[in-house]
Simulated scan of single mutants.
Amino acid sequence: MKFINLLASAVLALGTASAAVAEDKTKVGFVYVGPVGDGGWTYEHDQGRLAVEEHFGDKVETVYQESVPEGPDAERVITQMALQGADLIFTTSFGYMDPTLNVAGKFPDVKFEHATGYKTSDNMANYSARFYEGRAVQGHISGKMTKSNIIGYIGSIPIPEVIRGINAAYIHAKKVNPDVQFKIVWVFEWFDPAKEADAAKALIDQGADVILQHTDSTAPLAAAEEAGDVIGFGQASDMAEYIDGPRVSSIIDNWAPYYIARTQAVMDGTWESVATWDGIAPGMVEIGEITDKVPADVKAEALALKESIAAGDYHPFTGPLKKQDGSDWLAEGEVADDGTLLGMNFYVEGLDGDIPQ
């Protein structure tokens, strides 16, 4: 009987120890607007999640929910993650901003991080990347490589982040090719392969031989490949499956270092609510391999532009620049301030069409 009691005590102690280990794990949640297999935006965020797992091993547990619509559904999912014991929750789309803020107010002991927004609270930070720096590089390549002088741009949601990208690409295409025109099609979705493909085909039918996109699937590159003699760029991830086809470079969003650092801060008890906006220099924005489809001199110029931005020697929004209506914006040598860029709601001079409201 004594042996049985000792055995039972040992089993109980082992169970208690196992429970303690489980409780010691930091639980990190991720909410995604698209599927993890989208090949673009959500795929790269999920690569960041996997990097957290690899870095911390059994010290963390990660959970995620994919294809969560922006709006009330997002608030439900975020609340559920908090109720299930998440210590840190990353919500990775602009439309999750208010739902995240609402849930953060109800769970003061949980840390929240919202991507691409502008609101914070004591337990809610925000973070984004200066994608416009990569768009400047893409614009330079596009302006040099277009033969038709028509560049197509697929816009997702008309928020400042997307408008900045259009402006940055156009400014740098126009610098190297004064005859260039941009045609913009809005699909009003972040991820909808069918709409993205239709938009790409419509732009190609209008004479575009370069397709840029701020949408999350590889459908525009597939349409470019089908059309032939049309080039495009990977968006948010490398989209390397098209590297032997129309993809000549890419913007890669590298979230892993940020996710690891913020998880570590929660573990250390040093987490603070901050607003982070990093670009090429810290490595949050990467320029994917520029292929041999791009002439050597153009590639060299594009890489020099990238290095100049990274070094802080050049800012993609440097005057003289006017707004679309012809009014002055930036004087010669003047650089746009972050406040204006974060709230950008206008096109620069030379772009046609209106920004949807």
Score class of each variant (00 low, 15 high):
residue 160 P to I: 01
residue 122 D to V: 11
residue 124 M to W: 00
residue 134 G to L: 07
residue 116 T to N: 13
residue 113 E to K: 00
residue 152 G to I: 07
residue 125 A to R: 09
residue 121 S to M: 03
residue 114 H to S: 11
residue 116 T to D: 11
residue 166 I to Q: 05
residue 161 E to S: 12
residue 144 K to F: 06
residue 118 Y to C: 00
residue 162 V to W: 01
residue 157 I to F: 13
residue 168 A to C: 09
residue 167 N to A: 05
residue 159 I to W: 05
residue 154 I to S: 08
residue 142 S to P: 13
residue 139 G to L: 01
residue 137 V to S: 03
residue 141 I to C: 07
residue 140 H to W: 09
residue 137 V to P: 14
residue 154 I to P: 14
residue 152 G to Y: 03
residue 127 Y to D: 07
residue 167 N to C: 08
residue 147 K to Q: 14
residue 159 I to V: 15
residue 121 S to K: 01
residue 169 A to C: 06
residue 118 Y to A: 11
residue 124 M to I: 06
residue 161 E to Y: 13
residue 123 N to Q: 08
residue 169 A to S: 15
residue 146 T to W: 14
residue 164 R to C: 06
residue 111 K to S: 08
residue 111 K to Y: 12
residue 125 A to Y: 04
residue 114 H to I: 15
residue 112 F to I: 05
residue 159 I to Q: 09
residue 142 S to R: 00
residue 134 G to D: 09
residue 123 N to G: 10
residue 140 H to N: 10
residue 157 I to H: 08
residue 115 A to N: 05
residue 163 I to L: 11
residue 131 F to V: 14
residue 148 S to R: 00
residue 153 Y to G: 07
residue 145 M to G: 10
residue 151 I to P: 02
residue 146 T to A: 11
residue 154 I to Q: 02
residue 165 G to C: 12
residue 113 E to D: 11
residue 167 N to P: 11
residue 130 R to S: 07
residue 136 A to N: 06
residue 163 I to C: 12
